[in-house]
Design a protein around this nucleic acid. Structure first.
Lengths: 235, 235
DNA sequence: GAATAAATATGAGTGTACTCATAAATGATC
DNA sequence: GATCATTTATGAGTACACTCATATTTATTC
């Protein structure tokens, strides 16, 4: 990989030498290489110490090409993070007994996320970082896709729990998704802030979660359309 | 102001012409000018369309000097925003009758914040934007001060309500602060996202707030030290 | 296989937040 | 008022995310 990039850089434009240019490879392959490069570099050097140049180089593409596949550097992060987050939560859920109450199931998943966060900060911070998109009104579309990812991951959990009849039918998935994300977020702040210890945080979290789930009303008038994206993943 | 800056730019280094250079002014004056310049420009052009060069020019200082008074462009935003947010919440609270239940008082304050947000988006977005600090571990100190601001503002509200005996003594202020901030945050996402209408959001908010306040347990073992910063503002 | 159109790739170029070596001002001591 | 030390100011310079005019490949039609 590195060698290929170097060769390219040394030779300048390859025109007649290699009949197999990089363009015979299809878009998916290229995207895969980009994401792999990003994942490796983010994990090795951290997000802010990784430059888009480096990612492009490692993926063996031009600088500009990178931005045909991702709208921004942060876009790359969320793409990489998405898979890991969903995988983490689903792996955690698989270990939980079906008899466990829903609140505890969610706690397990959340615990796994937290553990993952501790293990691999540079990637996990993507979620928080990406939120900055909110500050830029031109990029609402990105926010929507971010939320779709989050709802998708959390929605899967809820849907799974629902299939085991541990949750009331008709519960507004979106609402729970929001609450869980919000709790995750708020907890993170307090935690990083150093003002709340881990056990305290987890205790509070448990309380809030129980409240959120046991106390929620099902909004009967609303069709709850936005949440459908989450449940349509595997139905 | 503009003229002064222009004159400076035209002449280059002013050495003998004006015996009253800018250095006779003390730091506070300079900071005030910087914040005023930032406030005006952010409001007029928006955050991202305002350059640090412009702010420096309007404040009649060098580019580098700006960064002696604020660690970053976003730092300026949070400084400007802090005052307005606290003022907004306190003004709102002043209009509420003492007989109003605490949940409704909070709702009033929150409504004022939302109204403010609608009225002056560029500044209000600072709060969300500043959260990006979390992504940079070198700036934990900044996060702490941000949270102190938020707790301070919300803490004042709670403290005030508490003085009117509409809230149980011993209620964990920090917890409520977290919850309110989290709710604000989550609501904002859904709102900007266009997936939740304003009335729906406010209805949900009311439900959640009631839950947070009526359902919370007071953690008796904890001294609740972090919340003290909020109440020490005026005691 | 020539000609044309459409899609995709490229990297030098651009804008801007932030830095840093240098300079100026201020204060202290004699 | 000369000398040194400390604080504060400066703007040209730097680094890096992202753009855009141009080039290259692929697809299509004859």
């Amino acid at each position: 990989m590195k060698q290929a990039a170097k060769a390219r850089a040394a030779k300048g434009k390859v025109e007649t030498a290699s009949p197999l240019g990089r363009r015979e490879r299809n878009k998916q392959e290229k995207l895969d290489r980009i994401l792999a490069a990003a994942r490796e570099l983010f994990a090795a050097k951290g997000f802010s110490d990784t430059t888009t140049q480096e990612i492009a180089e490692r993926a063996d593409i031009g600088t500009g090409t990178l931005f045909l596949y991702a709208k921004s550097k942060e876009d790359l992060l969320i793409m990489v993070f998405k898979d890991e987050m969903i995988e983490t939560s689903q792996t955690a859920l698989r270990k939980v007994s079906p008899d466990t109450p829903i609140a505890d199931q969610l706690m397990q998943v959340f615990g796994a996320m937290v553990a993952y966060h501790n293990r691999d900060l540079p990637l996990a911070r993507a979620l928080i970082r990406e939120i900055t998109i909110l500050a830029n009104p031109d990029r609402r579309e990105d926010v929507r896709s971010l939320m779709r990812i989050i709802y998708s991951g959390i929605g899967d959990i809820i849907a799974s729990a629902h299939a085991r009849e541990k949750i009331r039918p008709g519960l507004d998935l979106l609402l729970v998704g929001e609450a869980l994300f919000g709790i995750y977020y708020v907890g993170l702040i307090g935690w990083l802030n150093g003002q709340v210890t881990k056990p305290t945080f987890l205790k509070r979290l448990r309380t809030k979660l129980a409240l959120s789930i046991d106390g929620l009303r099902v909004p009967s008038a609303e069709p709850a359309a936005p949440a459908r994206a989450a449940s349509s993943r595997k139905s």
